[in-house]
Simulated assay, not measured.
Amino acid sequence: MGCGLPYAIAAGIAFPGRQIVAVVGDGGISMTLAELSTAARYKIPMKVVVINNGTLGQIKWEQMLFLGHPEFGCDLAPIDFAKVAEGMGVRGLRVDDPEDLARVLKEAFAYDDGPVLIDAVVDPAEPMLPPKRREQYMKHLQQAFDGGMAGQADIARRMEEEPALTALKP
Protein backbone atom coordinates (compact mmCIF):
# COMPACT_ATOMS: atom_id res chain seq x y z
CA MET A 1 0.00 0.00 0.00
CA GLY A 2 1.34 3.40 -0.92
CA CYS A 3 3.84 2.31 -3.55
CA GLY A 4 2.10 3.72 -6.67
CA LEU A 5 3.57 7.22 -6.49
CA PRO A 6 7.18 6.17 -5.81
CA TYR A 7 6.96 3.50 -8.54
CA ALA A 8 5.68 6.10 -11.01
CA ILE A 9 8.60 8.39 -10.14
CA ALA A 10 11.05 5.53 -10.62
CA ALA A 11 9.48 4.67 -13.98
CA GLY A 12 9.76 8.31 -15.04
CA ILE A 13 13.46 8.36 -14.16
CA ALA A 14 14.16 4.97 -15.74
CA PHE A 15 12.24 5.70 -18.95
CA PRO A 16 12.48 9.41 -19.76
CA GLY A 17 10.15 10.45 -22.53
CA ARG A 18 7.60 7.69 -21.90
CA GLN A 19 4.13 8.48 -20.60
CA ILE A 20 3.78 7.41 -16.97
CA VAL A 21 0.36 7.02 -15.37
CA ALA A 22 -0.31 5.91 -11.80
CA VAL A 23 -3.79 5.19 -10.46
CA VAL A 24 -3.69 5.25 -6.68
CA GLY A 25 -6.08 5.37 -3.77
CA ASP A 26 -6.36 8.23 -1.33
CA GLY A 27 -5.08 6.06 1.53
CA GLY A 28 -2.07 4.85 -0.41
CA ILE A 29 -0.99 8.25 -1.65
CA SER A 30 -1.42 9.70 1.84
CA MET A 31 1.43 7.42 2.94
CA THR A 32 3.90 8.78 0.37
CA LEU A 33 2.50 12.24 -0.32
CA ALA A 34 5.82 14.00 0.27
CA GLU A 35 7.18 12.31 -2.85
CA LEU A 36 5.10 14.69 -4.97
CA SER A 37 7.83 17.23 -4.26
CA THR A 38 10.37 14.81 -5.79
CA ALA A 39 8.25 14.50 -8.94
CA ALA A 40 7.99 18.30 -9.13
CA ARG A 41 11.70 18.83 -8.53
CA TYR A 42 12.65 16.57 -11.43
CA LYS A 43 9.69 17.62 -13.61
CA ILE A 44 8.72 14.02 -14.23
CA PRO A 45 5.94 14.17 -16.82
CA MET A 46 3.69 11.68 -15.08
CA LYS A 47 -0.02 11.68 -14.45
CA VAL A 48 -1.29 10.55 -11.06
CA VAL A 49 -4.99 9.77 -10.69
CA VAL A 50 -6.12 9.64 -7.07
CA ILE A 51 -9.30 7.66 -6.43
CA ASN A 52 -10.56 9.78 -3.54
CA ASN A 53 -13.40 8.11 -1.67
CA GLY A 54 -12.41 9.27 1.80
CA THR A 55 -11.86 5.73 3.03
CA LEU A 56 -9.41 2.86 2.96
CA GLY A 57 -11.73 1.19 0.46
CA GLN A 58 -9.95 -2.11 0.00
CA ILE A 59 -9.58 -2.59 3.76
CA LYS A 60 -13.24 -1.65 4.31
CA TRP A 61 -14.46 -4.24 1.80
CA GLU A 62 -12.05 -6.89 3.06
CA GLN A 63 -13.47 -6.41 6.55
CA MET A 64 -17.02 -6.91 5.26
CA LEU A 65 -16.65 -9.53 2.50
CA PHE A 66 -13.74 -11.64 3.72
CA LEU A 67 -14.27 -11.42 7.48
CA GLY A 68 -17.95 -10.58 7.94
CA HIS A 69 -17.16 -7.64 10.21
CA PRO A 70 -18.78 -4.23 10.07
CA GLU A 71 -16.39 -1.67 8.60
CA PHE A 72 -14.24 -0.14 11.33
CA GLY A 73 -11.53 2.50 11.34
CA CYS A 74 -11.31 3.02 7.58
CA ASP A 75 -12.54 6.60 7.17
CA LEU A 76 -9.93 9.17 6.21
CA ALA A 77 -9.83 12.89 6.87
CA PRO A 78 -11.08 14.82 3.83
CA ILE A 79 -8.13 15.98 1.73
CA ASP A 80 -8.19 18.03 -1.46
CA PHE A 81 -5.21 16.36 -3.11
CA ALA A 82 -5.27 18.81 -6.01
CA LYS A 83 -4.57 21.68 -3.60
CA VAL A 84 -1.86 19.68 -1.84
CA ALA A 85 -0.26 18.94 -5.23
CA GLU A 86 -0.31 22.63 -6.18
CA GLY A 87 1.38 23.44 -2.87
CA MET A 88 4.21 21.09 -3.81
CA GLY A 89 4.67 22.47 -7.31
CA VAL A 90 2.63 19.81 -9.11
CA ARG A 91 -0.23 20.71 -11.43
CA GLY A 92 -3.38 19.76 -9.50
CA LEU A 93 -6.81 19.11 -11.00
CA ARG A 94 -9.95 17.99 -9.19
CA VAL A 95 -13.02 16.28 -10.58
CA ASP A 96 -16.11 15.48 -8.54
CA ASP A 97 -18.64 15.18 -11.36
CA PRO A 98 -18.27 12.19 -13.72
CA GLU A 99 -19.47 14.39 -16.58
CA ASP A 100 -16.28 16.47 -16.21
CA LEU A 101 -13.84 13.55 -16.20
CA ALA A 102 -13.11 13.46 -19.95
CA ARG A 103 -12.37 17.19 -19.99
CA VAL A 104 -10.09 16.97 -16.94
CA LEU A 105 -8.20 13.98 -18.36
CA LYS A 106 -7.72 15.80 -21.66
CA GLU A 107 -6.36 18.83 -19.79
CA ALA A 108 -4.02 16.65 -17.74
CA PHE A 109 -2.59 14.80 -20.73
CA ALA A 110 -2.10 18.04 -22.65
CA TYR A 111 0.17 19.34 -19.87
CA ASP A 112 3.80 18.39 -20.51
CA ASP A 113 5.78 20.61 -18.15
CA GLY A 114 6.03 18.16 -15.25
CA PRO A 115 3.71 16.03 -13.18
CA VAL A 116 -0.08 16.34 -12.95
CA LEU A 117 -2.26 14.99 -10.16
CA ILE A 118 -5.97 14.42 -10.77
CA ASP A 119 -8.01 14.21 -7.59
CA ALA A 120 -11.02 12.08 -8.64
CA VAL A 121 -13.72 12.22 -5.96
CA VAL A 122 -15.82 9.05 -5.98
CA ASP A 123 -18.70 7.58 -3.95
CA PRO A 124 -17.40 5.81 -0.81
CA ALA A 125 -20.37 3.40 -0.95
CA GLU A 126 -19.33 2.08 -4.37
CA PRO A 127 -18.58 -1.63 -3.86
CA MET A 128 -15.04 -2.89 -4.41
CA LEU A 129 -15.92 -6.38 -5.50
CA PRO A 130 -14.02 -9.47 -6.52
CA PRO A 131 -14.41 -10.50 -10.17
CA LYS A 132 -16.88 -13.26 -9.34
CA ARG A 133 -19.47 -13.90 -6.70
CA ARG A 134 -18.61 -16.19 -3.85
CA GLU A 135 -21.42 -17.26 -1.58
CA GLN A 136 -19.09 -16.93 1.41
CA TYR A 137 -18.60 -13.23 0.60
CA MET A 138 -22.33 -12.63 0.53
CA LYS A 139 -22.78 -14.39 3.89
CA HIS A 140 -19.99 -12.29 5.33
CA LEU A 141 -21.51 -9.10 3.97
CA GLN A 142 -24.86 -9.96 5.57
CA GLN A 143 -23.05 -10.73 8.82
CA ALA A 144 -21.35 -7.31 8.63
CA PHE A 145 -24.71 -5.65 7.98
CA ASP A 146 -26.24 -7.53 10.93
CA GLY A 147 -23.54 -5.99 13.10
CA GLY A 148 -24.68 -2.53 12.03
CA MET A 149 -22.44 0.16 10.62
CA ALA A 150 -22.42 3.71 9.35
CA GLY A 151 -23.35 4.08 5.69
CA GLN A 152 -24.96 0.63 5.55
CA ALA A 153 -28.07 1.83 3.68
CA ASP A 154 -25.93 3.47 0.97
CA ILE A 155 -23.84 0.33 0.55
CA ALA A 156 -26.94 -1.89 0.37
CA ARG A 157 -28.43 0.42 -2.28
CA ARG A 158 -25.25 0.33 -4.36
CA MET A 159 -25.20 -3.47 -4.17
CA GLU A 160 -28.52 -3.45 -6.06
CA GLU A 161 -27.10 -1.32 -8.92
CA GLU A 162 -24.72 -2.10 -11.76
CA PRO A 163 -21.97 -3.25 -11.84
CA ALA A 164 -22.47 -4.93 -8.45
CA LEU A 165 -25.79 -6.45 -9.49
CA THR A 166 -24.25 -8.36 -12.38
CA ALA A 167 -20.99 -9.18 -10.59
CA LEU A 168 -22.85 -10.69 -7.64
CA LYS A 169 -25.34 -12.77 -9.62
CA PRO A 170 -25.50 -16.31 -8.26
Results as ranks from 00 to 15, higher is better:
G92N: 08
G92E: 07
V95Y: 09
V95T: 13
V95W: 12
D96R: 09
D96K: 08
D97F: 07
P98I: 11
E99W: 03
E99I: 08
E99Q: 15
D100Q: 15
D100P: 01
D100I: 02
L101W: 12
A102S: 13
R103T: 13
R103F: 10
R103W: 04
V104Y: 02
L105G: 06
K106I: 01
E107Y: 10
E107P: 03
E107V: 08
A108K: 01
A108H: 00
F109M: 06
A110C: 02
D112T: 14
D112V: 09
D112W: 04
D113W: 05
D113Q: 15
D113V: 01
P115N: 05
P115E: 07
V116I: 09
L117V: 14
L117Y: 11
I118P: 02
I118N: 02
I118R: 04
D119Q: 09
D119T: 08
A120D: 00
V121K: 11
V121W: 03
V121Q: 07
V122Y: 08
V122M: 13
V122R: 03
D123Q: 02
D123H: 05
D123P: 04
D123A: 06
P124W: 05
P124R: 10
E126T: 11
E126G: 09
E126Q: 15
P127H: 10
P127D: 02
P127M: 10
P127R: 14
M128P: 05
M128G: 10
L129W: 10
L129H: 11
P130T: 13
P130Q: 14
P130Y: 15
P130M: 14
